[in-house]
Design a protein around this nucleic acid. Structure first.
Length: 852
DNA sequence: ATAGGGTTAG
């Protein structure tokens, strides 16, 4: 409340209450202050009597509404007013001044002071709007009431209307609006209750109310009850009713029965209306059955009906979605021949059709043609184009189009923003996404659930759970109901950034409220597989089946991946067979996972066979699929072929990523062809691919194993100087190489650099260094690294113990030998390797000496 | 409420 008052600005009243603008002016200019009151006009004085209602009424009358409500005095009185007092003021204003005065006061309090009016006052205002036929405002007031009161509030509101407003004129209109609003909010039971009250009162519901109810009940038997009731009441249906009923028929009886309905012989010369044909055609198109839609179109013609613009647009859309752009264009010509001008919807459909096929130029030519006919691109055209750019990875071009759209004063919508937000998040530009989100809000648009979900998902993927939760709270405080999309993002984040226990807990909570949601299961199964717990993953899969939930291809892919990772190709194959039994088809991911497994097994032929099978089944390989192929070829030393595949990827319009390049570069390094390796780095940079830390690891390692240690040294130092992001591996490669070569000094130097960069150094890293030092008999330095490891709280494993034991013994350090042996006995490590200790070490006597 | 634009798990 306080912040609202602080934000107070003069002439603020006109905002949010456009309908009150002229009214405010008329009140403003009303000569309400008499000459004798000049003294008081500057600032109202201390209250002279104790009734704040009278005070306010007098103030409004004497100082004019706008002046008085803006003044300091009213602000102080306002803080003491309760709902009943405000009700009384509004009531008095209506009786003593005018309805408009009451309305103005009502809105000023709500909009400028954030005051929550009583239900009585809101109904009063509703009746005023109803009697003056301001139906849009009437709807808004009623909607706000339902917003406040929520689901199940119909009994309360109906009783109030009955008790306090029975004799008001326009009462039936208010009742009908209430029923309509409940229906619109999908509070069907409330709406039906209002209708029951209305029946007792002998009030008739309007067609929009009936239509909205029919729409909400289209999946239930009640549809026909309500429809009959509507006819019994003598309400004549309109074209919307037709489409809703047809839709209901499709929902309940299925499409084939709906078609039978269209084929019914005409009664009294009247057949099914065009709208019904259009509705069913649209349904077929959405299922991808354009041919069925086309035959309905023919049926229409046969019955002597003239397809309208909707019919054509529906069919053109269906053809575009199916990729038949040529036929879609032909239909557009036919439409024109029939005297129906293609409209902005037609053009937008076609533009999207071109973009779906990646034909950017065709899309632009079409837009030019459209503009020649006098049509301008609208918000949907821009949205489609932005989407096209984003798909091609050109987000910045999309952002430019958004700017253009805004600067041209195009009607704004949050949908183009949503597309850009989604694309920015997908490529990790979440900071920019958040800025764009702020732009969206400052431009006065209200983001919807999808917009929020996109951002929440982006933040969750980055592990920014706190920021995501903030947005979640924002959703809830905006009275938007989060859905399973929103929730699954959080599960994803907990899986990625929390422990498996936390993830399971989150999963259990989510599945309790939504037991049938397969996405939750998929995310959890995938996590179990990733941490190597295939057993739990299979358990979850079993419970999916037991609960009668339909698994999706993602479920299978995760499980197949898990079995492949466990080298259990037989189980993987069995699951692969099960996919079709569940009415699903293997996806690109399925094939790629299996191909990768075969590649790991060294089964090149099997892999290629699968690739052919995949293409035969019209499943399109992705850049990841080809990366797997390249990996297989590289593994078998077929480097030239792998280069060919790389080039073919570009020809097919696929974008190799860093992993693709790293794979080939590594193979060339191994094949001692460092020149080609560096050429490939150049090629990837040319294709705007930033080399990753792994690229540098591969190169540095390549230089090391090819006897170019000094080059490796220089490369690493040079990268460090340029602040290039490196991983621990780069340092370890250098350290190991220097150890093996015997240059302990440089090894220690890089080790310290690695520590400085706060990389976590594992037992394996220490072991690698120590083993190499021992091999070269640099025992003192081996002991040095061993003690550094111990001082960092890392205990040795049995293998390292063995190495160190021998090293200590060989360097004649009896004390350390005894100490280490004692420790090994205590931890039980000795028994694990006792047979591997060389016989030259007199274990027996050493152990004996410890026990003394 | 019969036509066109945006989100999910690998």
């Amino acid at each position: 409340m306080l912040t609202r008052i602080h934000k107070w600005k003069p002439y603020h009243f006109s905002r949010n209450s456009a309908c009150l603008c002229p009214l405010a002016n008329s009140i403003f200019t009303k000569p309400s202050v008499s000459a004798s009151n000049v003294e008081e006009e500057r600032e109202p004085m201390v209250p002279s009597c104790s009734d704040p209602v009278r005070e306010v009424l007098a103030g409004l009358r004497n100082f004019g509404f706008v002046n008085f409500l803006r003044g300091e005095y009213f602000r102080s009185v306002f803080s003491t007013l309760n709902q009943q007092q405000v009700d009384r003021i509004i009531d008095c204003l209506r009786r003593e001044s005018s309805d408009d005065a009451a309305l103005f006061f009502f809105h000023a309090l709500r909009n400028e002071y954030g005051f929550r009016h009583s239900k009585d006052s809101q109904f009063v205002v509703a009746h005023v709007f109803a009697s003056t036929r301001r139906f849009r405002d009437l709807q808004l007031v009623i909607q706000q009431m339902i917003d406040q009161e929520g689901c199940g509030s119909a009994p309360l509101l109906c009783e109030l209307l009955l008790d306090n407003f029975r004799d008001w004129d326009s009462n039936s209109v208010v009742w009908d609006t209430l029923a309509f609003a409940y229906s619109r909010y999908e509070m069907v039971n409330d709406a039906l209750l209002v209708l029951a009250y209305m029946k007792d009162l002998n009030f008739q519901a309007s067609i929009p109310t009936y239509n909205s109810l029919l729409h909400n009940l289209r999946r239930t038997d009640m549809l026909w009850d309500i429809y009959n009731k509507m006819r019994d009441n003598g309400i004549s249906e309109n074209e919307y009713t037709d489409s809703i009923l047809t839709d209901g028929l499709c929902e309940q009886a299925g499409l084939q029965d709906a078609v039978l309905f269209l084929q019914k012989p005409k009664v009294n010369g009247v057949g099914p209306p065009i709208v019904s044909f259009n509705t069913i055609m649209s349904r077929f198109c959405k299922l991808g059955l354009v041919d069925e839609a086309k035959s309905l179109f023919c049926m229409m013609l046969k019955q002597g009906l003239h397809p309208d613009a909707y019919s054509y647009n529906i069919l053109i859309h269906g053809l575009c979605i199916a990729g038949s752009i040529e036929e879609a264009v032909n239909f557009t010509d036919q439409m024109e021949n029939e005297g129906l001008k293609p409209d902005i919807v037609t053009y937008n459909i076609l533009v999207k059709g071109f973009l779906l096929l990646g034909l950017m130029r065709g899309a632009w030519q079409l837009i030019q043609k459209m503009m020649l006919t006098g049509l301008s691109p609208d918000v949907v055209t821009y949205t489609i184009l932005i989407c096209g750019h984003c798909r091609l990875g050109n987000i910045d071009e999309g952002l430019k189009l958004l700017e253009e759209m805004v600067s041209l004063g195009c009607q704004l919508s949050f949908i183009p923003y949503s597309i850009l937000l989604s694309s920015l998040c997908k490529c990790g530009r979440v900071k920019e996404a958040l800025i764009l989100f702020d732009d969206l809000k400052t431009s006065g648009l209200k983001p919807d659930l999808i917009t929020y979900s996109i951002l929440i998902h982006g933040l969750c993927k980055l592990g920014e759970i706190q920021s995501a939760l903030q947005l979640y709270d924002e959703i809830c405080s905006n009275k938007i109901l989060p859905n399973s999309f929103t929730h699954s993002s959080f599960l994803l984040a907990v899986c990625e950034y929390g422990t498996i226990r936390e993830a399971r807990k989150c999963f259990d909570v989510l599945t309790r409220s939504e037991p049938q949601n397969i996405v939750f299961y998929n995310i959890m199964i995938n996590r179990y597989v990733k941490v190597g717990n295939i057993g739990e993953a299979v358990q979850l899969y079993k419970s999916v089946i037991e609960k009668g939930i339909s698994p999706t291809i993602v479920t299978f892919n995760s499980l197949i991946y898990g079995f492949c990772k466990n080298k259990n190709l037989e189980e993987a194959r069995q699951l692969y067979e099960a996919i079709r039994q569940h009415g699903l088809l293997p996806s690109t991911v399925t094939y790629t996972i299996l191909m990768n497994a075969l590649c790991e097994e060294g089964c090149m032929q099997g892999m290629i066979k699968l690739l052919q099978q995949m293409e035969a089944n019209d499943v399109v390989p992705t850049h990841i699929t080809y990366t797997v192929v390249i990996k297989g070829l590289c593994k078998h030393g077929r480097l030239n072929e792998s280069l060919q595949v790389l080039n073919n990827m570009y020809i097919k319009g696929l974008h190799p990523d860093q992993i693709t390049y790293n794979t080939i570069i590594q193979s060339f390094c191994k094949a001692h062809n460092m020149i080609k390796a560096f050429q490939l780095v150049g090629k990837m940079i040319m294709h705007k691919l930033e080399p990753t830390p792994a690229t540098y690891n591969v190169l540095i390692n390549g230089l090391c194993i090819n006897g170019r240690l000094e080059y490796a040294d220089r490369l690493l130092t040079c990268l460090e100087d340029q602040n290039v992001c490196l991983s621990k591996v780069a340092y370890m490669v250098m350290i190991k190489a220097h150890c093996a070569k015997g240059d302990v000094h440089r090894a220690v130097l890089f080790f310290h650099k690695m520590v400085e960069k706060q990389f976590q150094i594992s037992i394996n890293d220490y072991s690698a260094v120590i083993n190499r030092l021992c091999k070269r008999r640099i025992i003192t330095k081996a002991k040095y690294f061993f003690s550094v490891m111990l001082s960092n709280g890392i205990g040795p494993d049995e293998k390292l113990c063995k190495t160190m034991l021998i090293a200590f013994y060989k360097s004649g350090d009896q004390g350390s030998v005894s100490e280490l042996l004692a420790e090994m006995i205590k931890t039980g490590l000795l028994s694990l390797i006792i047979n591997e200790i060389p016989t030259c070490i007199p274990l027996g006597s050493l152990i004996g000496s410890i026990h003394k």
